[in-house]
Design a binder for these strands. Structure first.
Lengths: 342, 342
DNA sequence: CTGAAAGCGCTTACAG
DNA sequence: CTGAAAGCGCTTACAG
């Protein structure tokens, strides 16, 4: 149990020169003679010297670490997003600390507190559905720790944002259902306060309107982002006197719940009820019948959010303006929404 | 953009006392007068002082951070495991850095390098299936950074280990299939070098033997831990002249692949082929028919590994001996292995 | 080209 | 009870 990391002091002692010189030689400073440099670098290598990042952090007030907060890492969408974050972070020499909010404002705030304490250089976050309040993020910004929002974005915070064109995704999915002959299209939406919920709902609504179809209050239900939520809402929908012939699900888990409930209830997809949802493709394809999916470029989303964040961190002065990037979703039609005739 | 964290120096200046006194007052040292203490603590609170953990790390050579390496965080088993790690770590005042090896020895080594550099206090790891070599972990230990293995454990490293009773899980699952009348039971196993692969294979084999059934080489195939792997091996199995009437899958994804392939090929589960697999219950239940599953206490596994690690970190002297904890798996029978007669 | 000194934020023996 | 000093590992103006 020898915790003997080599230090600059040690190298200096061995070579009988000053710490300053060693430090400069290691950083390849032009003011050190080639000869000294070589001596120092050779010794450092043979001793496996690596600079103590903690000392550096203390000095530079920079940790080369960024934080990510997502609602839940077990969710494929977010784990893929984290992949994108790590990809960029890693390639630009940063490390990543991952936090889960579990959709709780409380946990989100404790994460931001930890981030502030740890002097993390910046944060990318998909806010918890509970969070209407952005104060904890504003505080971070005021401490000089930039924050970039992705997926779930809110107006309350002035910063870069990366999101998916939810409106268009829902619009196109709804149009697809209409084109397949569905006339009573329901939507199980996500939790109320989240912006993506609103956008998707609007896309759904506008598509109906465009095609002269009625918008029925009773066909729109809000649900937490869980399978149980989707299942329960589906029961509710199918119990209606005027039951839907298609359902649009707002998330992976909700859509799984819809699929599950319909099977339980004995409905055939797509003949009795067509199903489409915002869903990871590998999950959607696992189902029987495979579910038509609006897929999101999650990895890319993580990448873009992170590169915006690192730019913010590395630039001296705040940017002229903050940008909001809108990525496109993808419609993948599978059996669950193909009417028998086709 | 004011990066003005309050420091001890600042408090000392405002109160016109020395840094030493402030430091001691904050740590509630008995050698400081109640009066001074109160003054200091009150001011610190009103200024939202929080000690700089980086300075503390430099001083104490401790970061209060542990590392976790898993093959893939998108895998439910591991994300749940990480939940367990964070649960314990958090409650004992540690933070967690998460690394993914993507099953590559290379990535695993770069993670351990980073961990050593960052002076992380300890590491829990489920080794990559590629890793037969444990040198990078041994090195960590030699630097005084304890390592605890979970899930995938190997003999090459002397330390605490936490694993599931794979042997028994596979044994019981196989017995279950036999009791259901299956007579030609195949096994799609995981990658060769991993210990759990061997254990599960043995459990399968011994169960067959116990019931006087033949062990057929051609009914055992190794697969990477992917859905595609499971699918392809299933094609291979079902193409045999003497095809199996049951398949035991060695992991979530492999089992998904089996299910998928059987459906593609037009076999009914469980009538034509019974299926059971090591699998997360929420995934297994999503399928149609729902898959019988050997479930593992993943969250608990993360908890136990972490508490063993923290004990190691916090004890001065190395433990008298290293222990290996073996957790029990659970057999959850669902439709995929219930023969029609039942 | 090289070194002594100060300092990042903190703690803790050592004096008094 | 309180303070000055040294030190964790490093960098960098300031001298020379």
């Amino acid at each position: 149990m020898t915790k003997t990391s080599v230090t600059i002091k040690e190298i200096a002692r061995l070579l009988d020169i000053s710490k300053s010189t060693v430090s400069r030689a290691l950083r390849d400073s032009s003011e050190i003679s080639e000869e000294t440099k070589k001596k120092v670098i050779d010794l450092a290598e043979s001793l496996h010297y690596s600079p103590n990042p903690i000392a550096l952090s203390l000095l530079k007030q920079r940790t080369h670490t960024i934080g990510v907060i997502v609602p839940d890492i077990a969710n494929r969408f977010y784990s893929s997003t984290i992949g994108g974050v790590e990809d960029i972070a890693y390639s630009r020499g940063y490390h990543t600390m991952i936090y889960q909010s579990h959709e709780l404002l409380d946990r989100e705030m404790s994460a931001t507190r930890h981030i502030a304490q740890r002097r993390v250089d910046g944060l990318v976050v998909a806010i918890a559905s509970q969070s209407e309040n952005m104060d904890h993020f504003v505080q971070l910004q005021e401490q000089g720790i930039p924050v970039v929002l992705f997926d779930r974005v809110l107006d309350g915070l002035e910063t870069h944002k990366v999101r998916v064109d939810d409106y268009k995704g829902a619009f196109e999915a709804t149009e697809h259902l209409i084109s397949r002959g569905c006339r009573r299209i329901a939507h199980i939406a996500g939790p109320q306060p989240v912006s993506i919920t609103r956008n998707r709902l609007e896309g759904y609504r506008d598509a109906l309107q465009k095609h002269g179809m009625e918008f029925q209050e009773e066909w729109v239900l809000h649900s937490p982002i869980t399978q149980e939520g989707g299942t329960e809402r589906t029961y509710q929908l199918m119990a209606l006197r005027n039951r839907p012939d298609a359902i649009l699900g707002a998330s992976d888990r909700i859509t799984m719940g819809i699929h599950w409930a319909l099977r339980q209830l004995g409905y055939k997809m797509p003949d009795d009820v067509a199903v489409i949802g915002f869903c990871d493709l590998s999950l959607a394809s696992l189902m029987d019948p495979p579910i038509s999916a609006i897929t999101q470029p999650s990895f890319e989303m993580g990448q873009q959010a992170t590169s915006l964040l690192l730019d913010l961190i590395e630039s001296k002065n705040p940017p002229a303006h903050y940008e909001t990037r809108v990525l496109q979703s993808n419609l993948v039609i599978q059996k669950s929404s193909l009417k028998a005739s086709e």
